[in-house]
Simulated assay, not measured.
Amino acid sequence: MEIKNLTTEQRNPATMHIDSMSTIDMVKTINQEDQKVAVAVGTQDDKIARAIDEAAKRYSKGGRLIYIGAGTSGRLGVLDAAELVPTYGIKPERAIGLIAGGKGAMYVAVEGAEDSQDLAKRDLKDLKLNKNDIVLGLAASGRTPYVIGGLDYAKATGALTISIACVKDSKIGHHADIAIEAVVGPEAITGSTRMKAGTAQKMILNMISTGVMIKQGKVYENVMIDVKPTNSKLIDRACRIIHTTTGAASTQKAKDTLKEANNDVGLAIVMLKTNCSLNQAKSLLETKNGNVAEVLNK
Rank of each mutant, 00 (worst) to 15 (best):
A179V: 11
E286K: 15
E187T: 14
G102Y: 02
M224S: 06
A120C: 05
G191W: 09
H174A: 15
V85F: 09
A165R: 08
A188S: 13
A70L: 07
V78H: 02
Q35S: 14
T43R: 02
Q280C: 04
R122D: 00
M207Q: 11
I189A: 10
I164V: 15
K61R: 14
R122Y: 03
I18C: 01
K103Y: 02
S283W: 00
V27M: 15
Q44K: 00
S20E: 14
L138A: 10
G158I: 08
A100F: 13
T15L: 03
T274D: 00
K168F: 09
I18W: 03
E33K: 12
V41P: 02
Y220E: 01
I242A: 03
T29M: 10
L205K: 01
A113Y: 12
L129T: 02
L160G: 04
L129N: 06
G101Q: 08
Q201W: 01
L284N: 01
V37W: 01
K128G: 01
P186D: 07
V85L: 05
S170T: 07
A200Y: 10
P186K: 05
A154H: 04
K218P: 05
K196A: 02
P145S: 05
T144Y: 03
D126W: 00
G150K: 03
A40E: 03
L76E: 04
I3F: 11
C166P: 09
T230H: 07
D115I: 12
A268H: 02
A179S: 15
I3A: 11
A139M: 13
A248D: 10
G104D: 14
A113D: 12
C276I: 00
V295F: 03
L284H: 10
D152R: 15
V270R: 05
D177Y: 06
A159Q: 04
T7I: 09
P86W: 13
I172N: 00
D123R: 00
R11L: 05
V183G: 08
T193D: 09
Y67Q: 03
